[in-house]
């Protein structure tokens, strides 16, 4: 039987694009840091320049995200009170402790890279120390949404996994984009020798990115399944979010941010050596930009979509 329900609730979303930007920038920063640590550990200085770009980007991005989040606060001057009041049940409280710590650690890590030493045991030790902290901050961004029982779109397990994986793809993409810009400024993109070496080094990065994107698509599929075939409330939340932000989520977040880069990258792999190095560099530019644009709009669609008013169910 159909029902019309009237109920006064606050108009508009409580969390806006700045929260999505914090998730995006913070995530990309965490991803960049983990990427730098991984390359340093695994390849022992071979990817020194990329690690340098990643290490410098990491604190800048996380701090930029935090800055936007502080701008969103209704009482930003009270921010310090988070550290004076203890509430371990609140993910935001944990975030307010761990995120600034990570920024500080990432700044030191970046400075060590900037010092330019080929092998630096302190830097490597710091990288290992920062890895669990970065993973905690990564998971925190997902937990922040997952714990909200009032928001069925977010209140699922895959939200945390999606947040962690999202960091990896956007982190790698932003490092690649900035690294290419640095190469361009330094004039190294005009040098065929440099370009060939760069592309050879890129193969491992490309494979990591493919794996992350595939894992992300798998996670989103399970997320969608859990909502689509979940409780009535979850189905309603999915339908409401789809209606309001479906095109943003599917076309920009999934299509532009994940599927298109995967297809374009895969085509380059299939064509192998026949692809001109300049074209391959262009593909890295374009796919990195696509992943970043898609990554932001994905988060925006999730943040706004999770706050779409749902049908009211009366208590009795």
């Amino acid at each position: 039987m159909n029902a019309d329900v009237v109920y006064i609730t606050q108009h508009g979303p409580l969390w806006d694009w700045r929260v999505a930007a914090d998730l995006f920038l913070g995530g990309a920063g965490v991803g960049a840091l983990l990427f730098a640590v991984f390359l340093d550990e695994r390849f022992d200085g071979k990817y020194r320049r990329i690690c340098h770009s990643a290490a410098i980007l990491s604190p800048v991005l996380i701090a930029a995200g935090l800055f936007l989040l502080v701008l969103k606060l209704g009482q930003p001057m009270n921010m310090f009170k988070t550290w004076l009041n203890f509430n371990p049940t609140a993910p935001l409280w944990w975030g307010s402790i761990f995120q600034p710590l990570l920024v500080l650690g990432a700044i030191v890590y970046a400075l060590r890279w900037h010092a330019g030493k080929e092998v630096d045991s302190f830097r490597r030790w710091l990288g290992r120390l920062l890895t669990p902290l970065a993973l905690i901050v990564g998971a925190y961004h997902g937990l922040l949404l997952t714990v909200l029982v009032s928001r069925p779109l977010w209140n699922t397990g895959p939200t945390v996994v999606a947040a962690l994986l999202g960091f990896a793809s956007t982190g790698i993409a932003v490092v690649m984009l900035v690294h290419l810009i640095r190469m361009k400024i330094a004039g190294r993109l005009a040098d065929d020798g440099h370009v060939s070496e760069f592309l050879r080094n890129m193969r491992i990065v490309r494979n990591i990115l493919f794996a992350v994107i595939l894992l992300q698509l798998g996670t989103f599929f399970f997320w969608w399944l859990s909502l689509r075939f979940g409780s009535l409330e979850q189905r309603e939340a999915l339908a409401a979010a789809n209606e309001a932000y479906g095109p943003m989520f599917w076309w920009l977040g999934i299509g532009l941010g994940l599927i298109l880069p995967l297809i374009v990258g895969w085509l380059v792999v299939l064509r192998g050596e026949s692809v001109h190095p300049r074209l391959e560099v262009s593909v890295i530019w374009v796919t990195s930009a696509m992943i970043l644009i898609g990554g932001f709009f994905f988060r925006l669609a999730v943040v706004l979509g999770g706050q779409v008013p749902l049908p009211i169910h009366t208590p009795v």
């Binding site: 109920y7 009270n78 988070t82 935001l92 009032s150």
Partner: peptide, 23 residues
């Protein structure tokens, strides 16, 4: 309100829409 940073997490958390934020 003296302790509040205005993050609106309370309002987002409430399943009943009972908390309003002065934007």
């Amino acid at each position: 309100p003296d302790k509040c940073i205005g993050c609106a997490t309370c309002a987002v958390s409430c399943p009943y829409g009972a908390i309003f934020v002065n934007h």
